[in-house]
Amino acid sequence: MSQTVGPAACQGDSFGYEAPGSLEELAAILRSEAGGERTPLFLAGGTDLWVDLRSGKKQANLVIDLKQLPELSGVREREDETGLGALLPIHSLESLPALGREGQALREAASALGSYQVRNRATLGGNLGNGAPTADMAAALIALDAVLELWRPDGSGRRVAVTDFWRGAGKTCLGPQEVICRVWLPRRVGWSSAFLKQGPRRAMDIAIVNAAVSLKTVKGVIADARVALGGAGATPLRPVGAEAALVGQKPSMAIFRRAGELAAEVSDPRGSGRASREYRLSLIPVLTERALTLAAERLTSQDDKKVARVK
């Protein structure tokens, strides 16, 4: 038996870095690399990528830094939706007015991610693009019915519902040359939302389980609901059965508890060094129920004031 330490040797290779200033430039770089020897990796905040490259967990000979792309930056408002640039630092989401009342779950998810420094660096798109089932942004965006706008070097962009983005453990629908440009959140007047996370500590941790929900009531009855879970399976999960059980009901502890149980029934978390499958399973109903309770308490439309406090 013999041994090598660190990343496998691959002498003669070089390690390159490009920072295109526009999607056109990016397209040109990708075209010139197509079929070549180098495997490019996209860099956004780099909070995971650089660490993984240094430890040898990931390998690359070309890193393409997306941070100079104006097309991926800023917030765009349309009449019926808000577009969040994929490069928005997580920290900026914590207090983003454009998210409106209905976007509270995303604000809370942003606040719960990593540390202040990491939130300054990490981006919305990067958190999704990683493909992790526990990504804090993921559950929140599912609960908010987000749509992702993707870009390809040939100019053929597409829009993908966030629920269709994940394709199995660590896998996404992104092609090798495809980039998340923007996350579109539909206007959802009268909705409220909430996000909760359980980690080993009260900060700085990857979620063991997280839950995001959103609710809309009409005349004191739940008219529509979204429930989303991270850490409950190989991908972020939307337990539609739990949602269906809520619709047509008055907000109550009993119905929220029922929704939590239904959410757990369709969950299939894996065990890891961070937490066992059993623990994750046991958290799912609790976090779902509590997030629903919180969201219900936040319903503030005139129509629903009388049920705003859940008994």
Binding site: P200, R201, R202, A203, M204, D205, G273
Partner: peptide
């Protein structure tokens, strides 16, 4: 409340970094 070194069945340390080995933060 949180600190524990985790070794696997081969005696390899599985959480030898300040992310996976938990020490209290200001929040704790």
């Amino acid at each position: 409340l949180m600190e524990e070194l985790r070794f696997d069945e081969k005696g390899r340390l599985r959480n030898g970094n300040l992310h996976d080995y938990k020490i209290p933060t200001a929040m704790d």
